[in-house]
Design a protein around this nucleic acid. Structure first.
Length: 281
DNA sequence: CGGTACTCCTGAAGGC
DNA sequence: TGCCTTCAGGAGTACC
């Protein structure tokens, strides 16, 4: 389920438990995740110190003292929970990976749908890990701006909705935030990506950044709430303008005034798109 | 090559 | 209550 803000929140939550800590033991479930665990996974990870936790798109990267990097992807239903040294460790259905740290903390990866995966990369992840080699820019980075986006959209026949979901155009966006950013920008999700003016792309870029930043902020606060309860690193509660609001009235004054439902749901490349049929053109 | 459809898997939600 | 269908925030692959 997680998109960039959720992955960023999860990564931040893992930092205090993992960074500069040695992983002393790894246990894996019998069932593999989306891909089989790489050969020698346990041997490669066990005994290594996590030097730095990072995020690229929707991927979490733990760089290890051995020079290798541990890559984690949450798929649609992956989550982590952290069991402190003095806490009782209860295993749950769909637990797949346990990382036991030197101080006794255990980090557990749980994933009911098993769309997530773990991988190992030797060398420079940006070059040697295939998905990163082709991945678009980080949307919160300086390099993500309207003119570079216009270049990347040039010649595309796909609708803007599909283009923004493509991780090779821009990294980390998923169905929810694409819907929200297009709504805020007043852009019809069905519009051809290559036919959007620079002016509108400027608004789009600003709104992509804004919606992600807002989500990261609320993700951070909900993380705190969750931790106290059961150690779950949850996803934040967030208010969406259009996502999952089919048949409702959006917050635009003109739509409020009209009083008839404006939010519609359509299917684009097999995924739900929610948008305001009056203000997005 | 570009674009879309299909696919992996489990669980939650809604209809009857 | 239970059984069935539909849908889910990802992304690689298959195929036109």
């Amino acid at each position: 389920m997680p998109e960039l803000p959720e992955v960023e929140t999860v990564k931040k939550g893992l930092v205090p438990a993992m960074e500069r800590q040695r992983i002393v033991e790894v246990t894996l479930s019998a069932q593999s995740l989306r891909f089989p665990y790489p050969d020698g996974f346990r041997q490669i990870v066990q005994g290594a110190v996590v030097e730095k936790m990072a995020r690229r798109g929707k991927y979490i990267i733990a760089s290890l003292s051995t020079g290798a990097s541990l890559i984690l992807h949450l798929g649609m239903s992956g989550s982590f929970r952290i069991i402190g040294p003095s806490q009782e460790m209860l295993s749950q259905k769909h637990d797949h990976i346990n990382f036991k740290m030197e101080d006794g903390t255990v980090i557990i990866y749980n994933d009911p749908r098993r769309f997530g995966f773990a991988d190992i990369v030797f060398g420079d992840v940006e070059i040697d890990y295939k998905p990163f080699a082709k991945m678009g820019p980080e949307p919160l980075g300086e390099s993500f701006n309207a003119s570079m986006l216009k270049n990347r959209l040039e010649g595309l026949k796909a609708p803007i909705k599909a283009a923004l979901l493509n991780q090779e155009i821009v990294a980390g966006l998923g169905n929810i935030y694409v819907c929200e950013a297009l709504y805020r920008s007043g852009i019809d999700p069905r519009r051809r990506a290559s036919q959007i003016s620079l002016r509108r792309l400027e608004r789009l870029v600003d709104n992509v950044k804004a919606v992600l930043e807002e989500a990261i902020k609320s993700g951070g606060s909900s993380l705190k709430d969750h931790k106290g309860v059961d150690g779950t690193m949850g996803y934040f509660q967030h208010h969406f303008d259009v996502y999952d609001r089919e048949g409702q009235i959006c917050r635009h004054a003109e739509c409020q005034k009209r009083g008839t439902p404006c939010i519609e749901r359509i299917v684009q490349s097999g995924r739900s798109t929610f948008y305001c049929s009056y203000t997005q053109s």
